[in-house]
Design a protein around this nucleic acid. Structure first.
Length: 298
DNA sequence: CACTTGACCTGTCCGC
DNA sequence: TGCGGACAGGTCAAGT
């Protein structure tokens, strides 16, 4: 499930490959996945160049020379797969489709295809159709009003500070894990990195946010920065396949502290990792390193 | 306003 | 083997 590090990795991969390319066609295979008036395809997409590619929260943004920007959200199962004319590729997104860079495309989960002027194709695959492609004026996107409920980026040292984090956590009774998943607190954390950050900070995911000490909150702040950085450095978790790409493989999962490691030993103390449900999500933690709140039972 | 739950989808896995 | 149901989790609308 692409979170910030996965989307960031895709953005970096595309940046070195398709900037300056002209889009010659956009084929829509699943109407629901492309959430704008299809007449705009010929008006502001086709025969326009991709001038920049960037990311805000978990949304990937392609600025076009027409003054419009394409916004792509992969949600849980979305993938972006670039195939150059020689047939080699670059793939990013959900692990279930990891072999698709080498497989035949389009396939039954392909929702849209961008054709570029050098003969390469970009496939938007999305098994569950939760992902979307939207189109907005670039000016509107850069004003940051397009995402109403998204907070600061983790690496924005002006907005995302320990003091900000503390103020947003200290008075809430909701489980701390639910707070981390709230995109308004900080953008880009999903289920994987929430669990990872909590383990690194030695805080049980079910604890009330308000029960955290200031020191614990500071530790969690640092842990959020650390796991997101580590995720980006490792090329994300949800990837496990690059074809002919210089970035290497996305292998965060091999180094995960708790995520998807239930029953396996904690990397810190050796206790078996537990999986339980917290805030409606599958949640992984070490019962020794992350002491549960009183009365908590998995 | 704070917080929780359900809906959106479809492929996979588990138990009977 | 087939089948029903739980599960996967990002986001938003609707509900308490």
């Amino acid at each position: 499930m692409p979170e910030l590090p996965e989307v960031e990795t895709i953005v970096r991969g595309l940046n070195s490959r398709i900037i300056g390319r002209e889009i010659t066609a956009l084929k829509v295979l699943e109407n629901r996945s492309v959430e704008f008036d299809k007449r705009l395809i010929t008006e502001v997409i086709v025969e326009h160049q991709i001038s920049s590619i960037w990311r805000r929260a978990k949304v990937m943004i392609w600025d076009l020379s027409s003054g419009y920007s394409l916004l792509i959200h992969l949600k849980m199962t979305g993938q972006i797969i670039l195939k150059d004319p020689a047939g080699s590729g670059f793939a990013g997104g959900h692990p279930t489709g990891s072999m698709q860079a080498a497989a035949k495309l389009p396939d039954n989960s392909t929702r849209a295809i961008f054709k570029l002027d050098d003969g390469s194709n970009i496939y938007f695959n999305d098994q569950r159709k939760f992902g979307w492609i939207r189109l907005l004026p670039t000016k509107e996107v850069h004003s940051d009003s397009f995402l109403s409920s998204v907070g600061p980026e983790h690496d924005d040292p002006v907005s995302f500070t320990p003091e900000y984090f503390w103020q947003k956590i200290r008075n809430r009774i909701t489980p701390i894990k639910a707070r981390l998943l709230d995109q308004k607190l900080v953008a880009g954390i999903g289920n994987i990195y929430a669990d990872e950050a909590l383990h690194l900070a030695k805080i049980h995911p079910a604890r009330k946010a308000s029960s955290l000490s200031k020191a614990e909150t500071a530790a969690l702040f640092n842990a959020v920065l650390a796991v997101l950085k580590e995720g980006v450095d490792r090329g994300g978790t949800s990837f496990d396949k690059y074809v002919n790409a210089s970035g290497g493989q996305g292998d965060y999962l091999k180094h995960a502290r708790v995520f998807k490691r239930e029953g396996q030993p904690c990397t810190v103390c050796g206790t078996a990792i537990i999986k339980a449900k917290v805030a409606g999500r599958g949640t992984h933690y070490c019962p020794t390193c992350q002491l549960p709140p009183r009365g908590w039972r998995p």
